[in-house]
Design a protein around this nucleic acid. Structure first.
Lengths: 83, 83
DNA sequence: CTGTGACTTTCAGTCCGTC
DNA sequence: GGACGGACTGAAAGTCACA
């Protein structure tokens, strides 16, 4: 069935949605572009863009890299932002 | 300072280690075998075993599935279990 | 600077069997 | 019940062109 992808009718925020929201929010807080974040974590611009748009299922390894670049703990990227 | 890890200059406890520790701990709390957990989250016995032994990089989608099976939030599986 | 589809390579995830 | 190795399939990583 593929829950997620680009669907709206979700009750509890999926892990992908929470991750994307946190990445965008933290990136903007730092005034970084997708390019800048991609450079900081050693990933590519388009890959980061795909993750932010929920178009990709990222793995733990890259979640950790993004967290490191953004200066937060990996679990903080999955936590619904109440910051 | 340095809660949890003793001495790691640039690496905190890796996300994989935290995840594995949480899965094992929560699984034992419920008195489940690897087989039982694998069945509950719709993954395979050997894959769960690999993740617990840090031999495999899991994707967000399956982290969410494990969290659901264990009855916790996805981010709680990545959070170092010291609280 | 960002969104997206398409593409190739790498590896996550399954399934076998053995200790 | 759990650790581990081999082999296979499909999905994630990584990159590009273009909107």
């Amino acid at each position: 069935m593929s829950p997620g992808a680009a669907n709206q009718p979700k009750k509890h925020v999926s892990a992908r949605e929470a991750l994307a929201a946190n990445i965008v929010a933290l990136r903007h807080e730092r005034g970084w572009s997708q390019e800048a974040l991609a450079f900081e974590c050693g990933l590519h611009r388009t890959f980061v863009a795909h993750v932010e748009r929920l178009s990709r299922n990222i793995s733990l390894d890259n979640i950790e890299r993004l967290a490191l670049a953004l200066g937060v703990q990996p679990f903080e990227l999955l936590k619904p932002r109440s910051d």
